[in-house]
Amino acid sequence: MTADPGYIDVHAHFVTPSYIDQARAAGHANPDGMPGWPSWSAAAHLELMDACGIAAAMLSISSPGVHFGDDAAARRLAREVNEDGTAVVRDHPGRFGLFASLPLPDVDGALAEIAHAFDVLSADGVVLETNTHGVYLGDPRLEPVFDELDRRGAVVFLHPTSPVRWEESALGRPRPMVEFVFDTARTVTDLVANGTLARHPRLTVIVPHCGGALPVLADRIDGFVKLFAPGGDGGPGAIEQLRRLYYDVAGPALPRQLPALLNLVDADRILYGSDHCWTPAPAVPPHVAALDAAATPVPGASWRSLTTANARRVLPRLEESR
């Protein structure tokens, strides 16, 4: 670790005019109940990164993802945004990486895009929404996708999206406020209870927003898995599986959420995340300053040095570029 390294931002987003146009045409004028779409450019993002001491950012498409109901259109859009993201990475070496989008729940399309993303585009990993049209990540239909990602030892970045029947559950409020943190817990619980994580030990899974609601629900999930999940009294328990995952600190991680997460996992599982461009640029520096000022459980280390070392360990491109 260096004394003052640049953060590695594993939770950063980009949008393109074409992507926004296609999402709006599919009914997402106010995505997930937010007032509208953010703007994004590589130049503005780099300016923010330099101001905050962020060395590199892993770009991904946020909610609502790329599948708006038509498999063929989702395949085209996934390929488009992945090509666009790769161009940004290529034009700014060492500053950006890419978590590629997949057209789930279209399994055949996802498998084709995995091959293209890794073998042609050299993507750093993939981003998976917590559900797509109600298909959560532990669904047996997605097993071929996880088999292939596990075979490749892939980094899998999870991102929350609106749950099914959000019209009733969100109570008229933007879904990122509460629904996202519970949909994160819901899909990770599905991965644990259905054995997906246990069957695919070579995956490196990054859970956003300090794990959402998982830290305070972990013991409850563990108890139910042991009692009711198939084989729950055999393989690794829920707590053990959750402790193997990585977690980013995007969002208001302090003063309460990060300490709760540290009751579940060790500091070597924590990664930095800004959630920019969906988190507006003015909100990023205060978050960085709060994290820089916060104490860590590791004597002599800062959250900057810890999270950067953790990110370099799980992202080969970053380690190789040192």
Rank of each mutant, 00 (worst) to 15 (best):
T2G: 04
A3H: 03
A3R: 04
Y7K: 04
D9S: 12
H13S: 14
P17K: 02
I20R: 08
R24C: 09
A25M: 12
A25L: 15
H28Q: 06
N30G: 12
D32K: 04
P35C: 08
P38M: 06
W40A: 02
A44H: 12
L46Q: 11
L46A: 07
I54P: 06
S60H: 10
I61Y: 02
V66F: 00
H67T: 03
F68E: 14
G69T: 08
R76V: 09
R79C: 00
V81N: 10
E83H: 06
D84T: 04
T86H: 04
V88Q: 11
V88H: 07
D91W: 15
P93M: 11
F96L: 11
F96N: 15
F99A: 05
F99P: 01
S101M: 03
P103H: 09
A110P: 14
E113V: 13
A117L: 15
A117Q: 07
L121H: 08
A123I: 06
D124Y: 04
G125V: 12
G125Q: 14
V126W: 12
T130E: 03
T130I: 03
Y136P: 00
G138R: 08
P144Y: 11
L149H: 00
R152K: 12
V156Y: 05
F157D: 02
P163Q: 02
V164Q: 11
W166E: 06
E168H: 14
D183V: 13
D183Q: 12
V188N: 00
D190H: 01
D190K: 00
D190G: 00
L191H: 13
V192F: 00
V192T: 01
N194D: 14
N194R: 09
N194A: 08
A198I: 11
R199F: 05
R202M: 02
I206G: 01
P208N: 06
G211I: 01
L214Y: 10
P215S: 01
D219T: 08
R220S: 15
V225M: 04
V225R: 02
L227C: 15
L227Q: 14
F228H: 15
G231Q: 10
I239L: 15
A250D: 09
L254P: 14
L254S: 14
P255Y: 08
P255G: 08
P259Y: 07
L264Q: 05
D266S: 13
D268F: 09
R269H: 09
L271E: 06
L271A: 05
S274V: 12
S274A: 12
S274D: 09
H276S: 11
P280Q: 01
V284M: 06
H287R: 03
V288A: 05
A290F: 03
A295D: 15
P297C: 13
S305D: 07
S305G: 07
T308A: 09
N310F: 03
R313Q: 10
L315S: 05
P316I: 13
P316V: 15
R317H: 14
L318A: 07
R322W: 13
